[in-house]
Simulated assay, not measured.
Amino acid sequence: MARKLRPEERELWKKVADTATPLALPAKMEMPPALSVSKAKAKRPAPVQPDLKGFKIGIKSRSGAVVSRGQAAAKPVPAMDAKSFGKMTRGKLRPEGRIDLHGMTMAEAHPALQDFILGSAQLQRRLVLVITGKGKSKPDHGPIPERHGVLRHNVPMWLRQSPLSAVILEVTPAHQRHGGAGALYVYLRRRGR
């Protein structure tokens, strides 16, 4: 509940209001003829009617599982087989090689990553671990937020670009036992596929 104004506050407000000049009301603005569309001319798409032939209450759907847009965005379908993907995300698969990019600049890390991934593909490794680190948090004094973890942000993009994308089957965040959010599993393709 708002408090009531005291008489001296009311008097002060009245003096301020008497000195204020009202703003001029803007003239009515008209739409240019090219942009104005009459309701009769505006085309609206016809509503889509679902096909309900043969529908009865209590009967199961004949189609497969329906996935909502939210579920599809939350869980992307892995490119690799589901059993290996599950083992990898739970940290049950052991990486055959690892590279630690801590302390490297972007100019140093990019060629090192390319050499490591392409070399691992030549050695026919399947799962390698790329450690980017989580990034240093810096005091943020400006109005525009600064992204920390430059390598953490750029390494996934580098892995999606050529020539690395040709030898990579799947990239996912590592399990906690292998570095968690500061590392990535890179699952390589078999040679000849």
Rank of each mutant, 00 (worst) to 15 (best):
M1Q: 09
K4A: 13
R6Y: 07
R6C: 02
P7E: 05
P7Y: 01
E8C: 01
E8Q: 09
E9V: 05
E9Q: 15
R10S: 07
E11F: 02
E11Y: 01
E11C: 00
E11H: 04
K14N: 12
K15L: 14
A17D: 06
D18Y: 03
T19V: 12
T19F: 07
A20D: 01
T21L: 12
P22K: 09
A24Q: 11
A24W: 01
L25D: 10
M29D: 05
M31K: 04
P32V: 10
L35V: 11
L35R: 08
S36L: 09
V37P: 00
V37S: 05
K41L: 05
K41F: 00
K43D: 02
P45N: 08
P47H: 04
V48S: 07
Q49A: 11
Q49S: 12
Q49R: 13
P50T: 06
D51R: 03
L52P: 00
L52Y: 02
G54L: 02
G54R: 06
K56A: 15
G58M: 10
K60F: 10
K60G: 12
S61Q: 11
R62A: 11
A65L: 13
A65I: 11
A65S: 08
A65R: 15
V67S: 12
V67D: 06
Q71V: 08
Q71L: 11
A72T: 03
A74L: 14
P76R: 14
V77M: 09
V77S: 08
M80K: 08
A82F: 08
K83Q: 14
R90C: 03
K92D: 12
L93K: 05
P95W: 08
E96Q: 13
E96T: 03
G97E: 02
R98C: 04
I99V: 05
D100K: 08
L101S: 02
L101A: 01
L101C: 01
H102W: 05
G103F: 02
T105K: 07
A109Y: 03
F116L: 08
I117Q: 09
L118W: 08
L118Y: 09
G119Y: 10
G119P: 09
S120F: 06
Q122S: 13
Q122P: 00
V128C: 13
V130N: 14
V130C: 13
K134W: 04
G135A: 10
S137Y: 09
P139I: 07
P139Q: 05
P139S: 05
G142H: 14
P145Y: 03
P145C: 03
P145D: 05
E146K: 15
R147G: 09
H148N: 14
H148Q: 11
V150N: 06
V150W: 04
L151V: 08
L151M: 06
L151Y: 01
L151N: 03
R152N: 15
R152A: 10
N154T: 07
N154K: 15
W158G: 09
Q161T: 04
L164Y: 00
S165Y: 02
S165A: 11
S165L: 00
S165G: 00
S165M: 04
V171T: 14
T172E: 11
P173R: 02
A174V: 00
A174L: 01
G179S: 03
G179Y: 02
G180M: 07
A183M: 04
L184F: 13
Y185H: 09
V186N: 06
R189K: 15
R190D: 15
R190P: 08
R190A: 15
R191S: 10
R193A: 15
R193H: 13
